[in-house]
């Protein structure tokens, strides 16, 4: 059993350690969709058309874009500082915002200080407040067609499970809205179609439940053994110090104690189950008034 425990521990903990390897994470803000040449597409608040960049809050919390930097220049990460203090830069979970690349930053928070180049490759990056740490970057290749945007098919999913970059031409241009419209819970749909009998869910879940509890079993088996060993050594030490004194062996086992307490509990519950209700008037002599008693105005001494 001891050997088995050790082997099990090895085989169970090893995959966990391997799983700790560096899996590519999707950024917290994703440059979600970019349109370089805008001829017939979305119009800004001034009635003008220009290229735009859509940023997506890829987390389940509200995040502020204020203070971050947008740039199209690798050597100048602080090219357009997104103004602080504008409530509109606060992005709700999994929501989008559009920045117009028209080189007219005086028009407002969402009009940035550079344009997208229709004849060359466009590098776009988002930097953090310090302007040194890259949050997300994207490179839109040269030779863009008018009114065709690039982005990620599923919002915020820049890297797939294998770590491959998912940037591609999108079927539809979807400024400030989801690149992929969700009308159903995909996870539920997947289980509905691929696991009609629930076998996959059952097997996976039972395996994980067992794995979690087997891990606990192994750890506490080992901890228990260590603790018992420690106690033994301590006892041995004690007996050598107090040689000649017999250790007490008449301890009451735990289950007997619990049975006694349960019996007592049930007995007491029975005793108090049904009682005749009798209303009486008893004269009570009080030498003091409880209303003015000091005890009600004092806190109990806190216990450790």
């Amino acid at each position: 059993m001891k050997k088995l425990s050790k082997h099990l521990a090895f085989f169970l903990i090893l995959p966990l350690c391997i799983a700790c390897s560096s899996r590519v994470q999707n950024p917290r803000f994703v440059i979600n969709e970019v349109l370089v040449i805008n001829e017939q597409n979305y119009v800004d608040d001034y009635g003008q058309r220009s290229g735009w960049i859509e940023i997506f809050n890829n987390t389940a919390k509200t995040q502020d874009l204020g203070g971050l930097f947008l740039t199209n220049d690798r050597s100048n990460p602080r090219k357009y500082p997104i103004p602080k203090g504008d409530v509109l830069t606060k992005l709700a979970p999994h929501q989008h915002v559009l920045f117009w690349a028209n080189n007219k930053p005086y028009q407002g928070t969402f009009y940035i200080s550079f344009e997208l180049n229709p004849d060359a490759e466009n590098y776009i990056a988002l930097y953090d407040e310090s302007g040194t740490k890259l949050i997300d970057e994207v490179t839109i290749p040269k030779g863009q067609l008018p009114d065709v945007s690039w982005g990620y098919k599923t919002d915020g999913v820049k890297f797939n499970r294998e770590g491959a970059n998912m940037l591609a031409v999108l079927e539809k241009v979807t400024p400030s809205t989801n690149n992929y419209t969700l009308d159903k819970n995909e996870k539920v749909e997947r289980f509905k179609h691929q696991d009609k009998f629930g076998a996959s869910m059952t097997i996976t879940s039972m395996l994980v439940v067992f794995l979690a509890l087997v891990l606990l079993y192994i750890v506490f088996k080992l901890v228990g053994k260590g603790s018992v060993g420690l106690n033994k050594r301590k006892k041995e030490k004690d007996t050598t110090v107090t040689e000649g004194v017999k250790p007490e062996t008449n301890e009451i086992p735990g289950e007997v104690l619990s049975a006694i307490f349960m019996a007592l509990h049930e007995e007491q519950s029975d005793v108090h189950d049904f009682e005749h209700t009798i209303l009486t008037f008893n004269k009570i002599n009080r030498n003091y008034s409880p209303w003015s008693s000091k005890i009600y105005g004092l806190r109990q001494t806190p216990r450790k």
Binding site: K196, F197, G198, T202, M206, V209, V214, F220, G224
Partner: peptide, 27 residues
């Protein structure tokens, strides 16, 4: 539980009730 950790596994086995009912509910 700590004193007899193998009993943990019984707790795991009972969770089959959840998934048994899951399968039937799907049907």
């Amino acid at each position: 539980l700590i004193a007899n950790p193998k009993l943990i596994l019984v707790g795991a086995a009972c969770q089959f009730g959840i998934f048994g009912a899951y399968i039937i509910a799907l049907q």
